[in-house]
């Protein structure tokens, strides 16, 4: 089956090899917990940091992190991209929503290692230059937030909601935006914002 491996896997394996080769010789404190072949016994202590390259907002970021690090913690604690928020850390609130390969996911339940080779888009990568994304502008226009803590997750989710085709009517928007809890309860304004931004996003 290995001949059918996706490009994602082979890229990963090549990097793993390089990192492993360099790691043991030059960086004794760094180990590679990711084996090339699952059969190969993992000699390294799994509690040692591993190297991973995450592609975030169009840029490759090389990190040495604990294998347990989630995408959310990698963004917040290692890449200083603190726009994605931790509200529950268990996939129950949606504050950490990011796009991975253009699909909305909760970054708190996604291992950084598992996201290697994929395109991660966060709230910081949504605006181009100084121009706000239409969804960001719509959130401002419709006062779709109060404390603002859930807002990055709401906006990322809303962008995906539109692209999925789930913003055709208010009932759909409400249902498909229900994975993002807003404790301030700006919900009706969030629905209005998604409605406003949807045509522009679909057009562009």
């Amino acid at each position: 089956m290995s001949d059918k491996s996706s490009s994602r896997t082979s890229t990963f394996d090549r990097r793993a090899f390089m990192a492993g080769a360099a790691g043991s010789a030059l960086v004794p404190m760094t180990a590679r917990a990711v084996a090339q072949d699952a059969n190969e016994p993992v000699a390294q202590d799994p509690s040692l940091p591993v190297e991973v390259t995450l592609r975030v907002n169009g840029k490759d970021k090389r990190l040495r992190i604990d294998a347990r690090t989630t995408v959310l913690d990698a963004l917040r604690e290692h890449l200083k991209l603190t726009g994605s928020k931790k509200g529950c850390d268990h996939g129950q609130c949606g504050a950490c929503t990011v796009l991975i390969d253009d699909r909305r996911v909760v970054s708190c339940l996604t291992l950084a290692l598992a996201a290697e080779g994929q395109e991660i888009t966060t709230i910081e990568g949504l605006a181009t230059d100084d121009r706000l994304h239409p969804m960001q502008q719509a959130f401002i226009d419709n006062d779709a937030f109060q404390c603002g803590y859930c807002t990055p997750g709401q906006i990322m989710s809303a962008v995906a909601c539109v692209k999925e085709g789930h913003a055709g009517n208010e009932a759909d928007i409400r249902e498909y935006m229900s994975g993002n809890i807003c404790r301030c309860a700006a919900y009706p304004n969030i629905v209005a914002a998604v409605k406003q931004a949807a045509p522009e996003i679909m057009k562009g």
Binding site: D13, A33, N39
Partner: peptide, 21 residues
């Protein structure tokens, strides 16, 4: 969360072997 080794399966055989090791 306890430490774990992370491996990416490239094909079903490999996955099955790793899981039943």
């Amino acid at each position: 969360m306890r430490s774990f080794s992370y491996r990416r399966a490239s094909d079903p055989d490999m996955a099955v072997r790793a899981l039943s090791a």
